[in-house]
Amino acid sequence: MRIAIPVCDNQVATVMDFADRLLLIDCEAGQETRRNIIDFAQKLVPAKVARLADLGVNLLICGAISRPFFAMVLHSGIEIIPFISGNVDDVLIAYFRGCLVDPRFLMPGCRVGQYWGRRGRRRGHGGFRW
């Protein structure tokens, strides 16, 4: 499984749409096996989504994201956990422990009830809808 997180200085980048660096984490059986940071400076949203698909990303954990970007990611078969903020390592640990949807990782203006287990339905997280 491959997880992608847009990053800025070891923090989850505030807005997915404006992020230009992407952390890729490969994991097996809930354990991180490899990580790699890549340039993600595509200008257009469809190009960003296509890049995510080309990279074989299964799950995108990101900060704020525009509605069209969110819809495109979801329709390309990539699971998404948006409106997450905080230190990347803390976020990953919380994800593997199944407790990412914790108020301390949620951006302001987001409620836990806003999250819906739309795809994947893993413990403590899932898809999202507005």
């Binding site: 200085d9 302001p108 203006g109």
Partner: peptide, 24 residues
């Protein structure tokens, strides 16, 4: 403008609240 309530915004970093292209 941001759609975020005052009580949610107070105490959070401005970049988390404003979410602007210039923040980072």
């Amino acid at each position: 403008i941001t759609g975020i309530l005052k009580e949610d915004a107070i105490g959070r970093t401005c970049r988390e609240v404003l979410r602007a292209s210039c923040c980072e």
